[in-house]
Amino acid sequence: MPTLSRTARIAVRTGLHALPTALGIVIISFLLLQFAPGDAVDVLAGEAGSATAEGMAEMRARYGLDQPVLTQLWAYLSNLVHGNLGWSPRYNMPVTQLIWDRVPESLVLTGAALVLALIVGIGLGAVMAAREGRLTDRLLSVLSLVFYSVPAFWIGLMLIVLFSIKLGWLPSGGAGTIGSSATGVAALLDKLRYMVLPTISLSLFYIAIYARLARVSMIEAKGQDFVRTARAKGLSERRILFRHVLRNALLPVTTVAGMHVGGMLGGSVVIETIYGWPGLGRLAYEAVMGRDFTVLLGILLFSSLLVIVANALVDVLHSILDPRVGGSDAA
């Protein structure tokens, strides 16, 4: 029951913070996008190659792009209150439907990358902390520094060259075999084949961060009084490491992971473009290139809400790992 009470408090607090935060993000993003040159009508006219000035003016009037900025902002916020994210001139469909069609693919990719980064990063950090100062610690520290320093797009391209072109083991792009009629386990395995390279490309940077952070946190925790007490009780080093040290080291790692959700969504723009993954990142890139700012605003709003939810889940996890977190809230 105390855990449920802390979870309820966290949910209420998150809800109170989410509305003004999301509203502020929408307003600031809307105003900043007005400084971008051109609009969706300009791009559509350029692609058509035969648009007239009268036709372009009619299209701008249809989508409200000829109105003053504040009038457009008020109309957008009014639609937002009713759950309407607007209409996409480029795709000629509601933005809400367009985003929801891409959300599953983005959540699958970023979720897999985050889980992989946490498991591998924390595992490497535990090994480095257990082998502090030894050759294993130094080699893994250098490896994590390489992962941290190399740009994700370069890693993505090199993985394609190695595993797709040279070895032919994995597909170079897409989210599944085109025209495949596979179902069940066969469809899942086909999906996983296409996920391997983009997931690794997106997660390597975060693996390096979590590995180094877990190493530092565990080394610091090993010097605390509760660890010395556990040793005095005769507990094995392995049990002390996983039962006491690792649990306390998870607090800073999960905090940083919650903040990285937004960064992963931003990084997925590059990864999804390289691998042709049909997610929100690629949609955001297409929206920028097509000056479809209504779609871009919808993606920014959804991403901000996802980050808020992720941080709320991190708070709940902290209250489970360390009950003192919930107790401080109550005070």
Rank of each mutant, 00 (worst) to 15 (best):
G133F: 06
I99Q: 00
L98A: 14
S141C: 03
G121P: 03
E132L: 05
A113R: 08
G111N: 05
A130Y: 13
D137W: 10
M93H: 07
Q97L: 03
G121H: 05
R90C: 00
R90L: 03
Y91H: 11
P104L: 14
P104D: 11
W100C: 00
G121M: 05
E132A: 14
R102V: 06
A126P: 01
L107Q: 01
L109G: 01
S141V: 05
A129G: 11
V103N: 00
G133V: 08
P104F: 14
G133Y: 06
T96A: 12
S141A: 14
I122W: 02
T110D: 00
A117W: 10
Q97R: 04
R90H: 05
D137M: 08
W100V: 06
G123S: 13
A130T: 11
M93A: 15
R134L: 10
A113T: 08
E105V: 14
D137T: 06
M93I: 09
A112F: 14
I99K: 00
E132C: 02
A117K: 07
S106Y: 06
R131Y: 13
N92R: 12
G123P: 00
A129Y: 10
S106R: 08
G121Q: 03
M128K: 13
A112Y: 08
I119E: 01
I122H: 02
A113C: 09
T136I: 13
V142Q: 04
R131D: 05
E132S: 13
P94L: 04
P94D: 08
D101C: 00
A126M: 11
G111T: 07
T96Y: 10
L139G: 09
R102G: 06
V103L: 15
T110H: 00
A126W: 03
L124T: 11
Y91C: 00
V108I: 11
G125S: 12
M128Q: 15
A130V: 11
V103H: 01
L107W: 02
S106A: 07
I119P: 00
A129T: 13
P104C: 13
G123T: 14
G111S: 04
N92S: 10
A112H: 06
R102W: 07
G123Q: 09
A113H: 07
E132G: 02
I99N: 00
D101G: 05
D101A: 13
G123R: 12
R138N: 12
L107S: 00
V108D: 01
A129I: 14
A129H: 12
G111D: 05
S141Y: 07
L114S: 07
W100L: 10
I119M: 04
A129W: 09
L116Y: 06
I122V: 14
L114C: 03
R131K: 15
I99C: 01
L114N: 02
A112I: 04
Q97Y: 01
V108L: 15
A113S: 15
R90M: 13
R90G: 01
A129Q: 12
G133W: 06
L116V: 15
V95Q: 07
V103K: 02
P104H: 09
A129D: 05
T96I: 08
Y91G: 01
L118Y: 02
I119S: 00
L143H: 03
A129F: 12
P89V: 15
R134Y: 08
L143R: 03
I99H: 01
L116G: 04
T136D: 02
